[in-house]
Write a protein that binds this DNA or RNA. Sequence first.
RNA 1: GGCGCGGUGGCAGAGUGGUGAUGCAGCGGACUGCAAAUCCGCGUACGGCGGUUCGAUUCCGCCCCGUGCCUCCA
Length: 459
Amino acid sequence: MPLVLYNTMTRRKESFEPLDPDRVGMYVCGPTVYDRAHIGNARPVIVFDLLYRLLKRLYPNVVYVRNITDVDDKINARARDNGEPIAALTARTTQAFHEDIAALNALPPDVEPRATAHISHMIALIETLLARGHAYEAEGHVLFSVPSMADYGQLSRRSQDEMIAGARVEVAPYKRDAADFVLWKPSSDDLPGWDSPWGRGRPGWHIECSAMSKEYLGITFDIHGGGQDLVFPHHENEIAQSVCAHGQPFARYWLHNGYLMVEGEKMSKSLGNFFTVRDLLDQAPGEAIRLAMLSTHYHQPFDWTAEGLRQARATLDRLYLALRNTAEIRPKGRDNLPIEVLAALKDDLNTPLAIAHLHDLAGNLNKATKPEEKAKWKGALLACGDVLGLLQQDVEAWFRWTPAGGTELTDEAVDALVQRRIEARAAKDFAEADRIRKELADHGVLLEDGAGGTAWRRS
RNA sequence: GGCGCGGUGGCAGAGUGGUGAUGCAGCGGACUGCAAAUCCGCGUACGGCGGUUCGAUUCCGCCCCGUGCCUCCA
């Protein structure tokens, strides 16, 4: 049962066979650090985190590289608007990014290279492209010559004629060909810049990924991922740069997550449906956001909705309840991922199917009567959680989560009321017991009387 | 205009050439002081029209609808 991945380059599912099974390399395009991560940024983070977890389970050594783009015109513009130094903006935003995605249970990549720390690598790459006749200088810029690459456009399946016909942006006069793109551009004194053979300047958008992927993964490596919107021009141009510079293949498998929409519409600030990850973490646990994202296959368009988030929370309630109801059982076989779930994930990360199996496991756990059966199903459920990045937290912590600025009762106040109700029930004062239940319910706290006492959770 | 992606039951969302996942919501039952949770049972869905086939939601064609990209947005 091989790992099968949908390769954008070939537009079909392919068996994944790493170049070197002892060192699997994956490069994913990371954030441009000028603002808080939004919900659309979260999808590739979560999707490729899952792939990373799966790869680590299948191969002994996986190197996951996700860059930080900390030189960019949007950064420059934002720093100017904020009246703060660029370095302060990028440092602050990078830290916020790390906090946000950690809350989504995304593991840190093995390497997280920053563009500004690799300028010399980019310059060297550009020099190679110039030397090989794939780039040219013009008015302080260095441009990649698209016509110099015979098979440009393979990934996005565009012919150069089409691109010219469809071009709707005014072509800079110094470009020899409308499709040529910038490798290096001049910087004025008020902008970030580095000395180069072409004067003080800064890199174009695409070159950093070509330079840094080679640095950490080599010229040819296994997997390159990102959002579908990066297929063109970003990934296409990365391929052009890397292949033309090195004369060898670049990434072998290209994976792209589908677009994200919000309540059926494109997310945009003007529509008022623009959410940052931070906004959502105030409303729901990060784990619920993660599960919501994984409820749709990564390749499909994903529609972010309040209802979807509610369902994700309900699903996690169900799974955590199965764990809570067997709190006294020590799980067994947690290292053994159930075969159905492994098979689902190995089939191009079929997370919806894997989640369906999670429900089966929870059902089995709920139905089990013998302790050894419970231990087995509980271990299986937790094993799935480990690879999916779910069910990692303390069960009670899950049920006690409160939204930011919530006016709910404190945990202590709930405990005190629960205790009073226990006493009322012991005295057969069911009117008082029901009154307390009602009072708690009005504050979003649900009670569950079980054999082992009364448990509560916030709804 | 060019190049893509998608349309599955009330909702979300897998999957498959023929015994039609899973969850949420809903209904009925068991259990419970009452609940909740849990368990049991219940829903003949696959955008439209053709074609191939013994048989299509699944393959092919056309159409309709939604959505994305087309040089710096994950």
